[in-house]
Every structure is written in C-alpha cells, then in structure tokens.
C-alpha cells in the first residue's frame, strides 16, 4: 500500500502544518481584536535604551568546539553500531581508542576551565 517508508512522514508534516494553520485561522475568527497590538519589549515596565538584538557574549564558545569534535564522532558511531559483531574486536578497539582521545581532549578542556564560565 505504501510506496516508501517516508510517505507517512510527509503526510504527517503536511497534516501538522495544516493543523497549525487552521489554529491560526480559528484565532483570527474568534480573537477579541484583530488589529495587532504594537508594543515595546517587556523587561518589567520600562523601555530599553537600545534594541535588544545584540552581539551576544557567547561564553560557552570553547564548549562548542569540544562539542563539534564529538558531534563529528557521532557520524561514525551511528553506522558503527550496525557492524560491531560483523567486524569483530577491532571495531570496538578502534572506536573506543578514538573516544578515548576525544575524552582526553575533554579532560584538557576541563583543566583549562572551558566548562566553567561564571
């Protein structure tokens, strides 16, 4: 009946988007005032002096670097799970050596204080 595994996924995507659009339509029909309210941002009642959008102080920048290394590693780890017993002990040894190297990196980053930022 189904042409592919992905068919229901696409139907579902359309369905959910349609439901959300419908909700918006219902809201337009029943809302108290249709004209949007234009207002300033809330921070307790007073107005900010500048636009809040700003270059953010990304204090966890070193964490993103460590994260990226591991995220790349996951690309190998997902397919690896399927072939462990097929390939044998060498698969396990190689993967965990790799992970060990990365963990050593984590240890180094920790010692450098990358995970503490306040």
């Amino acid at each position: 009946m189904q042409t592919s595994d992905w068919q229901p996924v696409f139907i579902l995507l359309v369905l959910v988007l349609a439901a959300i659009a419908l909700l918006h339509a219902v809201a337009i029909a029943v809302c108290a005032v249709r004209e949007p309210l234009r207002t300033g941002p809330f921070s307790g009642g007073l107005e900010p002096r500048e636009h809040p959008l700003s270059r953010f102080h990304v204090r966890w920048y070193p964490v993103t670097m460590v994260f990226l290394a591991f995220d790349m590693e996951m690309l190998f780890m997902y397919p690896w799970t399927k072939v462990v017993s097929e390939v044998g002990p060498s698969a396990v040894i190689e993967m965990f050596l790799f992970l060990g190297v990365l963990l050593a990196g984590v240890g180094y980053a920790w010692r450098e204080g990358a995970f503490r930022w306040s």
């Binding site: 909700l23 219902v26 809201a27 029943v30 809302c31 108290a32 005032v33 249709r34 004209e35 949007p36 309210l37 234009r38 207002t39 300033g40 941002p41 636009h51």
Partner: peptide
C-alpha cells in the same frame, strides 16, 4: 490564549 489579540513587539 486563543481569543487574544495578536501582539507585535517593536522591530
């Protein structure tokens, strides 16, 4: 929430 007026903050 459904009956609320739409709301837009500045810019």
């Amino acid at each position: 929430l459904l009956v609320q007026q739409p709301r837009r903050t500045r810019a």
